Amino acid sequence: MATAAHVAQQVVLHPTVSQSLKVLGTTLGRDKTYRAVQYFARFLAWLLLSRGYKIEAARWNALKNHLALGRKLMRLGKPMEHAQAAMRAALAPGVPAEQITTIGRQLSYFGYLFHDTLVWANAVKFYNLKPSTSARVGKLANQFWLSGILFSITFGLLKAGRLANEAKQLQSSAWSEKGAEVDRNVKLQANLAARADARYQFIIDLLDIWIPATNLGFVNINDGVVGIFGVISSLMGLRQQWLAATGKK
């Protein structure tokens, strides 16, 4: 009995369990988790349907739809966060091109989430839209989403280029004093970390861009591929949240 209690204590109070609860205690942590399950369900529904398992596919498709609706509810009020971020970016000093793309990205996400809120209100019958209006609102949401990702990709490329040039300047500079050498090494480490973050987000954006592009009919990618891309980008986003919660980022 004592051994069983000890094992239970080790499992329940394990640091990984505590950390998982800490991450899932945040809205962003839950959203990334639900998103990963949602896109896995999208992939699995496609896989089952392609093999003729219609009943099983319907079960996973229903889970995908309910998770998508639940995530829209969790994002209520989030458009204003992006509006504030756009305002802060406009007021803060910075590289003009990066500043413009940041503002464009935040305003695009504001437009996306605002229209996505209307989609949710219509889906739960809180506010009824005409079918034609509902389709137009959904299309606008995806257009804003796509433009936000494109702005994010452009920002990532601009930032990566600037950081690469700064790294070259730091490496080629002559430093005679020991204190200056230490300062350069610190700046180089910070530069490398910033470049790694930019590359990481760039990969997420390259995976996510196919989702609104497919919804808008710009590309013809099946739900299986879109689902896998969504799972990978969701897990990458969840990893960022995990590292942020542990203070390692």
Rank of each mutant, 00 (worst) to 15 (best):
K159C: 09
Q84M: 07
G77V: 07
F229S: 01
D183C: 06
Q9K: 00
S152L: 06
I232Q: 08
I209Q: 09
N128M: 03
L146M: 15
Y34P: 04
S134C: 09
F114P: 05
L107Q: 07
L118G: 13
E166A: 15
K130C: 14
A198I: 03
L69F: 05
L140V: 00
A196K: 10
Q38M: 08
A58K: 13
V7W: 09
I149C: 11
V186Q: 05
D205H: 12
T117Q: 06
I103Y: 15
L47R: 15
A90M: 11
T33C: 13
T133H: 01
G247H: 05
G224S: 09
T102A: 09
P93L: 01
A89K: 01
A45P: 08
G156S: 13
G227Q: 02
T16H: 07
P96G: 03
I55V: 13
L188D: 15
N215Y: 05
T117H: 10
A160S: 10
Q240C: 04
F110T: 14
F144V: 03
V11Y: 06
V95G: 06
G230N: 05
N61A: 03
I149L: 07
W242G: 02
Q9V: 03
V186P: 03
L107A: 12
S234R: 08
T26V: 00
V7L: 10
M1Y: 10
K78H: 13
V37K: 09
A244N: 14
R30K: 15
F218G: 04
S108H: 00
I100M: 09
R199Y: 07
R136G: 02
G94F: 04
E98S: 14
M1T: 08
L73T: 10
K125R: 08
S108D: 06
